[in-house]
Nucleic acid binder design. Structure first.
Lengths: 188, 188
DNA sequence: TTGACAAGGCTAACGCTGTTAGCTACCCTG
DNA sequence: CAGGGTAGCTAACAGCGTTAGCCTTGTCAA
């Protein structure tokens, strides 16, 4: 638990100082210029290095992406845990959804990277994904409700990021509709 | 409406006979060998053709993917319209969700292609996306409920396809939890 | 002081990707 | 029989992730 009022994330994978710099540069590149800009050669340019030298710090691009995803999950999990820990009684679900949406929309490219297909989940720090998803269980108190609420939040975010809703949609109301659905359906 | 009991899809883009063959081959390749196998050269091999010759039929890979996505949306929309049209009173939402899940899991790679980021939506046949999403409005009777239900279904499918749920999850129950949440929250 | 070794950079190159340019052969129409 | 469209071809380009092999620098022990 600790003084922050919610459980600490599992220990992150250790990284050399230079590896930390590489991840930071990769993240800036991804967030500012989009996923197609995250290229070993362009990342090398940012670092003042040739692309093959990056392989001195990470065995390949997937490993580098995994490091970025670990950071992203820690930050997202922290935001979600804080949201439910600080919510008034009965307000956990709406508070969680607001935090989820805000965090994802604030880091759209990182969110897409972390939730995209084809990532080597078995190489991720043990328990990190579970810890990041725990707030959904804390807010609903029931595992299937938690999974369903998570699916709703994730679906909303990806559809919103991809501009898949009708142009004049009032998405605040759609999020509210989902929140109230899961609140009224919550077990006693 | 017509005799099928639900509105017909908007007219599809016209394709030359050879273009139809190209799309069919591309679809078989994608469904059987996954997205990384859908390559212009490999597609050419399947067709007994060199990769540059494909450009006689489609201006580029995105246009070819768009054609595949149009087919996918027509099929998905047909399945969803049929599900709500044939559902007993009050059973529209569960019936819709069952059809959505079944269709997506039956064509996982095509579903991912159609719902992935970065597709040129403005080039798609007018009204096709709206028509395919219409069953969600028909099942809920309210636009924000419809969007929220769609987000839940899409989120469930992508999380299920990506194996992001805990290994021993009973996903039938999770789908049921979402269905009942939206049913009990539905307006009078 | 010197030798060994690791860390971290480099160039050259490979096989893959989507794509373009330019050529050629066939077929249908006038 | 000429012209034009259709549909194939080869060669090539730039960019991708990645590997092999080399070299310099710094540290640390003998």
């Amino acid at each position: 638990m600790s003084s922050r009022g919610f459980p600490a994330p599992p220990p992150a994978t250790v990284r050399s100082p230079r590896a930390v710099q590489v991840v930071e540069a990769a993240r800036r590149l991804l967030e500012s210029d989009g996923p197609e800009a995250l290229t070993m050669r362009r990342l090398g340019d940012v670092l003042g290095i040739r692309a093959p030298s990056i392989y001195k710090h990470f065995p390949g691009k997937p490993a580098l992406e995994l490091a970025m995803i670990e950071d992203a999950l820690i930050e997202l999990g922290t935001a979600l845990h804080r949201a439910v820990a600080g919510a008034a009684r009965g307000e956990a679900v709406p508070s969680l959804l607001v935090a989820y949406r805000a965090h994802a929309l604030a880091h759209p490219n990182l969110y897409r990277l972390a939730t995209g297909a084809g990532l080597a989940r078995q190489d991720m720090a043990d328990g990190l994904e579970d810890w990041a998803g725990e707030p959904f269980y804390l807010a609903t108190g029931e595992p299937h409700q938690a999974q369903a609420l998570w699916a709703f939040a994730h679906g909303m975010v990806v559809l919103e990021l991809d501009d898949r809703f009708l142009p004049d949609s009032d998405l605040d109301r759609t999020w509210a509709a989902g929140a109230s659905a899961f609140v009224t359906a919550a077990p006693a």
